[in-house]
């Protein structure tokens, strides 16, 4: 635990709460800036859709309470903040008796699983490719082939997803185009189910890994090149250390630290981009739920999911930030 000082700890935890507060406040303000009364607009839209709504009075009440639209604005804000902090996300408007928390709990494991695996894979592969691109001992053939793996960098996740569906699901029929597991498979820890989940998850994961890998590779390449001229690298080589040892212990180990910081900063955009991947693949995670919320103009569901996404990324960033001093003792001494 050397290096993890109180000062650093307090700053990071404060950062976590500022992020959550800012996100929650944005979600609070936005509906109030939109023209028109959201409750009236929503009820009329729902009535136009359904003709008649059972329990509509109760629903309006739930909706009003959700936003606390029955008091002065500061009181509304306080009430809203309390409900957010206790994770009381209210009732879904489109599927009324079900609560938003329950719907999210069903979707959460899919998103967390897909995102964790895809992000880790792209981070590891990308950094390895980048390091090999910068390493002088990489064989020429491999060095020339490596940039090919970066072809899809800069293409949005979901667009590659569409291309993958066309190629591997529609044309070749190797992988299923949508869903997270085959129908009729018994859900549980049995081999059939696991196989089906992997089979269905391959394309969504690939569309995230192939597109985000290049970002890590480029960053790593830059760090390794900068490292190359440092004194300790020259000394390590002059000492006649095994080149692989120099590559791993001296090169990659120092160069990967800023990459972890970059990972913490980009988690938000990865989480955002993956919502579209889930929508394209009809993958039953939070992103797909969000899409259903949009289609049904289910405002409580949309806001609940968005808040959970913010909470999730802020938590992951906090964890990464707390892990960082453990692998890099310099970080806590750094000022500014």
């Amino acid at each position: 635990m050397r290096g993890l000082t109180w000062d650093y700890l307090i700053r990071r935890v404060a950062m976590f709460f500022v992020t959550i507060w800012l996100g929650a406040t944005l979600i609070f303000i936005i509906p109030r800036l939109a023209p028109g009364d959201p409750v009236a607009a929503m009820v009329s839209r729902l009535q136009a859709q359904a003709g008649y709504i059972e329990n509509s009075a109760e629903m309006i009440e739930a909706w009003r309470r959700r936003f606390g639209l029955d008091g002065p604005i500061w009181l509304q804000y306080l009430k809203y903040m309390r409900s957010v902090l206790t994770l009381d996300l209210g009732y879904s408007l489109a599927y009324f008796p079900s609560r938003v928390e329950e719907m999210i709990v069903d979707a959460l494991p899919w998103t967390v699983g897909l995102l964790t695996l895809a992000t880790l894979m792209s981070f590891v592969l990308g950094n390895l490719i980048g390091a090999l691109m910068a390493w002088r001992r990489t064989p020429g053939l491999i060095r020339n082939l490596l940039p090919l793996t970066l072809t899809f960098t800069s293409i949005p996740f979901f667009m590659l997803g569409i291309l993958l569906i066309y190629l591997f699901a529609f044309t070749l029929d190797w992988f299923p185009p949508s869903g997270a597991y085959a129908r009729g498979v018994e859900i549980g820890l049995n081999w059939e189910f696991i196989k089906s989940v992997i089979h269905h998850g391959t394309l969504p994961a690939l569309s995230i890994v192939l597109t985000s890998m290049g970002f890590w590779a480029l960053g790593m390449r830059g760090m390794m090149i900068t490292n190359e001229g440092e004194d300790y690298m020259i000394l390590a080589e002059a000492k006649g250390l095994n080149p692989f040892r120099v590559f791993w212990k001296y090169g990659i180990r120092t160069a990967v630290l800023p990459q972890v910081t970059a990972l913490a900063l980009s988690l938000g955009s990865i989480a955002g981009g993956s919502t579209l991947v889930e929508y394209i693949f009809a993958y039953p995670g939070m992103g797909y739920l969000l899409y259903q919320g949009i289609v049904n103009t289910d405002y409580t569901l949309i806001q609940g999911i968005v808040f959970m996404l913010i909470l999730g990324t802020a938590t992951s960033v906090l964890i990464l930030d707390l892990l960082l001093p453990l692998i890099d003792p310099r970080i806590t001494y750094e000022r500014g």
């Binding site: 992020t19 979600i27 955002g272 969000l290 968005v306």
Partner: peptide
Amino acid sequence: TLADAMITIPSLAVLIVISAY
């Protein structure tokens, strides 16, 4: 602090809330 917090927030998600309204 504000800039760091904004970067952490998944922008697409908040943009979806805005566009939904």
